[in-house]
């Protein structure tokens, strides 16, 4: 993936970039290390992922162990994030929830990524009536408020993880399709795409071997934004009671359970939200950083 953009030099800035010494992957790393947004994003996200993956080992307490005599305690040395109404350690629950919510966000992002990039490429390359029809389908989906569509599908498919996957597979491809289609159309006007086809390559080969590597960096940048969106959506659905169901720890349900104590025990609803924001900032910095390294702006 990291070598993809360099393999197909396009006119302009990319040519200058390829003149730097070293193999493409080495050059990529050199540039990446000098992009502060990318480094910061990778570090933040890396920490969150480590916390999520090793949550069972790192959690000081069992995330579901209740201690009713010790409920609603403020943050302290023993309980970094305090305890909730059932005396459960909020820090342990926050990192346990990280593994639930991050896993769902990443898994739910895969199908829309593949479908959206494929639809965008085909729509942009083929043009004509196919492009028109896909354009109208996209317009139709865009007309639905995101949460209304997701909530309706979750309602039909059932609450919980399954509903989220179905809902996202249905609506998530739109943004890729739009962006990749526009990019593909621009690329198709460039000489080398026409030359590739004129040189005797088949349509599928032009799309898969020449256009795809050129749009992939853009799609990966978008993927970061989408994972962020899905994570926020999973948390929001959890808050609404339509997402991850208890007793599985989830940031959204933690916030909604804690909302009752907002006025008197602020740490119960607010600290899980801080975990969402931290992860989200990591993701958007990573996306911005990748865009900088690949010179997409």
């Amino acid at each position: 993936m990291s070598t993809a953009p360099a393999r197909e030099p396009s006119p302009g800035t990319e040519l200058i970039a390829t003149r730097a010494p070293g193999r493409p992957s080495v050059r990529w790393w050199r540039r990446a290390r000098r992009t502060p947004a990318l480094v910061a994003g990778a570090v933040i996200l890396g920490v969150m992922v480590v916390l999520a993956v090793f949550a069972p080992v790192l959690a000081p307490y069992d995330p579901s162990a209740q201690d009713l005599g010790n409920g609603l305690r403020p943050p302290s040395a023993a309980h970094w994030f305090g305890t909730d109404q059932l005396g459960r350690d909020i820090w342990s629950r926050v990192i346990a929830a990280a593994s639930t919510d991050l896993r769902i966000a990443v898994l739910a992002a895969i199908t829309p990524f593949v479908v959206g990039v494929a639809v965008g490429l085909v729509s942009g390359y083929a043009g004509g009536w196919l492009d028109w029809v896909i354009g109208r389908v996209v317009d139709t989906f865009v007309a639905f408020p995101f949460y209304v569509l997701v909530i309706a599908v979750v309602f039909a498919a059932g609450t919980g993880e399954r509903g989220i996957y179905v809902a996202y597979a249905l609506v998530g491809w739109i943004s890729y399709a739009r962006v990749i289609r526009a990019r593909t159309r621009t690329l198709c006007r460039e000489g080398w795409v026409q030359a590739a086809y004129g040189g005797g390559l088949s349509h599928p080969r032009v799309v898969a071997r020449h256009l795809l590597p050129n749009v992939l960096p853009l799609a990966v940048v978008l993927l970061m934004t989408e994972i962020l969106l899905i994570m926020v959506a999973v948390v929001t659905l959890g808050y609404l009671g339509l997402g991850v169901q208890p007793p599985t720890p989830d940031w959204g349900t933690m916030i909604s359970d804690g909302q009752l104590f907002l006025t008197t025990r602020w740490w119960v609803p607010t600290l899980p939200g801080l975990a969402v924001v931290t992860t989200g900032v990591g993701l958007s910095l990573l996306g911005d950083g990748l865009a900088d390294v690949w010179r997409l702006r």
Binding site: T236, L262, T270, G273, V276, V277, T278, V281
Partner: peptide, 16 residues
């Protein structure tokens, strides 16, 4: 960048 990462309902709770 930070604003985009905040779930709106959580921002609502903070404002409250």
């Amino acid at each position: 960048t930070i604003g985009m990462a905040m779930p709106t309902f959580w921002v609502g709770l903070l404002l409250i």
